[in-house]
Design a binder for these strands. Structure first.
Length: 278
DNA sequence: CAATGAACCTGGTTGC
DNA sequence: TGCAACCAGGTTCATT
C-alpha cells in the first residue's frame, strides 16, 4: 500500500471533505478484510466529518454527533478519491456523497483494506491500533527508542523495519530506501547495529518519508492521490525496483555495482552491497 | 516470546 | 493467442 507518505497524502486530500453534510452512502457487497459495516449509511447520513487524521498507516474519521469513529486502512491496493464524479467503477467499495455533490470514494482491487466502525470513546484500544509502535515521523521515534526496541532481536533489520509494533509507517519501499541512505545492509541483525548506525537510520527514515510526502507519495500501480493523479516519488528511488542497475553513489564514483534483489520474509529487498556493508 | 511462512485477493507481466 | 506461474505499497494467523 500505501505506506506512511501515501496515507499522509490521502489524509491531506480528504481534509476538503470536512464539515460537509453527508447526503448518501453507497456500500458494496464484498468484504474487505472485514465485512463493511451496514449501519454506516444510517450513521453518516445528515451528519459530517469534523476530523480526519492519519494514525500510522490508518485513517481515523471522526463523525459529528456520533459515538463511533471509522478506522480505515488501504491495504496493498486501496485508494481514497475525492471528486464530484457520479460513476461507480469496479472495486469501488464505499462512496460517501456530500450535499454539494462531492464524494469520498474508497476503491480497492485486492480488498486487503479495512473500513470498520469503533467506539469513539476508546478507539485506540481497538485490536488493530493498540499494538502500533511510535510513528516514524514523531519525535518519539529516535535513536534511544529504536535501540531499546531492537535490543536482542536476531531478525534482519529490513524485516524489523516492517514490523509496525516497532516503528509505524515504514513499508517495503521505504525500508529499502532508508537502509540504502543509512549505508546499512538489510541483512544485518537488528540487534547488532551500533548507536551511529541507528542514528543514521532514524534520520534516513524520516528524510525519505518527508521527501516522498512532498512529492505526493509513490505510485507503482494502484495508489493514486485523492485527486486521481499519480505520486512522483517513484521517480526518485535509489534502489527499490532497480535490480541490476548501478546505485546513485557508485555511479558518481564510477564504481562497478549492481543493485541486488533478494527475498526477506517473503518481501523483496533491494540494496547495494558496495555501499551497504555488513 | 521471537521468528518464519502461509493466507487473504485481484490483476498485470513473463515465459513457454 | 493461450495459459500457467509469478509478482505486487500489508497485515494477521498458525506453526516452529
Amino acid at each position: 500500500m500505501p505506506e506512511l507518505p501515501e496515507v499522509e497524502n490521502m489524509c491531506c486530500g480528504l481534509q476538503q471533505a470536512l464539515h460537509k453534510d453527508i447526503k448518501s452512502v453507497y456500500i458494496a457487497d464484498k468484504s474487505l478484510r472485514e465485512p463493511l459495516p451496514k449501519e454506516l449509511e444510517q450513521l453518516l447520513i445528515n451528519t459530517r466529518f469534523y476530523q480526519i487524521k492519519r494514525l500510522a498507516k490508518y485513517l481515523i474519521f471522526h463523525i459529528s454527533n456520533c459515538n463511533k469513529v471509522i478506522i480505515a486502512h488501504a491495504g496493498m491496493s486501496g485508494r481514497f478519491i475525492y471528486d464530484n464524479n457520479k460513476d461507480i467503477i469496479k472495486h469501488d467499495h464505499i462512496i460517501i456523497t456530500f450535499q454539494d455533490g462531492h464524494r469520498i470514494k474508497y476503491n480497492d482491487p485486492r480488498r486487503f483494506g479495512l473500513f470498520i466502525l469503533e467506539d469513539a470513546a476508546n478507539y485506540l484500544q481497538n485490536k488493530y491500533l493498540n499494538k502500533i509502535g511510535v510513528d516514524a515521523l514523531s519525535a518519539e521515534f529516535n535513536t534511544t527508542y529504536l535501540e531499546l526496541k531492537l535490543k536482542n532481536l536476531k531478525i534482519n533489520i529490513k524485516t524489523a523495519l516492517l514490523n509496525q509494533t516497532i516503528v509505524a509507517g515504514v513499508g517495503n519501499i521505504y525500508a529499502s530506501e532508508a537502509l540504502y541512505t543509512a549505508k546499512i545492509s538489510p541483512l544485518a541483525a537488528a540487534g547488532s547495529l551500533n548507536k551511529i548506525d541507528l542514528e543514521n537510520l532514524v534520520i534516513a527514515i524520516k528524510n525519505v518519508l518527508h521527501k516522498s510526502i512532498k512529492l505526493g507519495g509513490s505510485t507503482l500501480k494502484d495508489y493514486k492521490k485523492t485527486d486521481g493523479e499519480k505520486g512522483q516519488f517513484q521517480d526518485h528511488f535509489s534502489v527499490y525496483g532497480k535490480e541490476n542497475a548501478s546505485c546513485p553513489a557508485c555511479l558518481v564514483n564510477k564504481e562497478d555495482c549492481k543493485i541486488i534483489k533478494l527475498k526477506q520474509n517473503g518481501r523483496s529487498t533491494f540494496y547495494c552491497s558496495n555501499i551497504q556493508n555488513l
